[in-house]
């Protein structure tokens, strides 16, 4: 009987210790033993807010939403931050409800100055909303329309170029202004080009992040192909502008004037850069992917098709410009 008692005692003690150690470890890692600070936020709507949703700072989970309460002015949100993360909640902290393209919503804490005084638990900070999915889709949809507009512009340009008795003299007068703009490293065109190159380089590095986050090799491949196209087109437009640069002295107001070709090209490039910036933001959000990655893959596919449409349109424009703008093809145009 004594032996049995000893064996049973050992079994119970060791197993209990193991269980308690596991619970203790989980509880410790989940900050159950540390002091927790509670802050109150407010929002005009409770949409996309759930109890238990994470509070994130610089990509790290620092707390969670503990409760939601409906009031007359909107919704009161209580967040709990463990003591060890409490230092990032300062009086200048901004709280953004982030609904990323991939994954679940979270509250992102943005603190510019970590040395600012701590946020008083009595303060009710208003939450701002950033809904990437809806915004991205909203922004992506007009791209096709814009591409149509671009094509119409190209036709206009072609017509103007085809008219030999047009405003050549007016073009020539404005040549100096245009040349100065192109030569200026801070000028619009150069800035656009720089931005485009930087973005293209950044896209090239994102494959691994994407693959990790999305877990769908096909989707990642599609996006990557699209990005490669963007890069090609950028290079092609870059070449066109290089041509323009080399012949600035030989072109007229028809090309460089306020209603000429180059302002149109500049508009197009601005469009392109704006789109690229948006796509870049989207891809940045992919880093924040959470469990709902599978659902969001659909969004990625939609985005990819929009991107393709825009790229095709811009690519066609580049071809058209290359073919029709009479840069070096018409060296006989003389300066006055």
């Amino acid at each position: 009987m004594q032996k049995i008692e000893l064996k049973v005692g050992l079994f119970v003690t060791i197993t209990l210790l193991l269980i308690m150690a596991s619970i203790g470890y989980v509880a410790y890692k989940k900050d159950m033993f540390s002091k927790v600070y509670t802050y109150t936020l407010s929002s005009k709507t409770g949409e996309n807010l759930t109890e238990g949703m994470p509070v994130v700072f610089w990509g790290f989970n620092i707390g969670r939403v503990s409760s939601l309460e409906l009031i007359d002015q909107g919704v009161l949100i209580q967040i709990k931050i463990p003591e060890r993360h409490n230092r990032v909640i300062r009086s200048n902290s901004k709280f953004v409800l982030d609904k990323p393209l991939f994954g679940a919503s979270r509250i992102v804490v943005e603190t510019d100055n970590l040395n600012a005084p701590p946020l008083s638990p009595k303060t009710v900070s208003e939450i701002s909303v950033s809904n990437d999915i809806n915004e991205m889709i909203k922004r992506a949809l007009p791209i096709v329309d814009k591409a149509d507009r671009i094509m119409a512009n190209v036709e206009q340009v072609t017509e103007k170029l085809a008219d030999p008795g047009g405003d050549v003299n007016r073009i020539l007068k404005n040549t100096e202004t245009v040349t100065a703009n192109l030569a200026d490293p801070k000028g619009d065109v150069n800035r656009i080009l720089k931005n485009a190159e930087a973005l293209t380089a950044r896209f090239a590095k994102k494959e691994s992040v994407l693959e990790m986050a999305v877990g769908n090799t096909e989707s990642v491949k599609s996006v990557h192909e699209a990005l490669a196209n963007v890069r090609d087109i950028t290079v092609r437009i870059d070449k066109i502008l290089a041509k323009a640069d080399s012949i600035t002295g030989k072109t007229g107001e028809e090309i460089y004037g306020p209603d000429g070709v180059l302002p149109l090209v500049r508009d197009i490039l601005r469009d392109l850069v704006a789109k690229l910036t948006k796509i870049d933001t989207t891809l940045d959000n992919i880093n924040k992917v959470s469990a709902e990655a599978v659902d969001s893959t659909k969004d990625l596919k939609v985005l990819r098709s929009e991107l393709d449409a825009a790229i095709t349109a811009i690519g066609n424009l580049a071809e058209e410009l290359n073919r029709k703008i009479p840069f070096k093809a018409k060296p006989e145009i003389k300066l006055p």
Binding site: M1, I4, E5, K7, V8, F11, V12
Partner: peptide, 16 residues
Amino acid sequence: RMVLINQIYFTSVQIL
């Protein structure tokens, strides 16, 4: 208590 100890022994420890 003796029955309980015996039962734990036969159910958990012996089968371990």
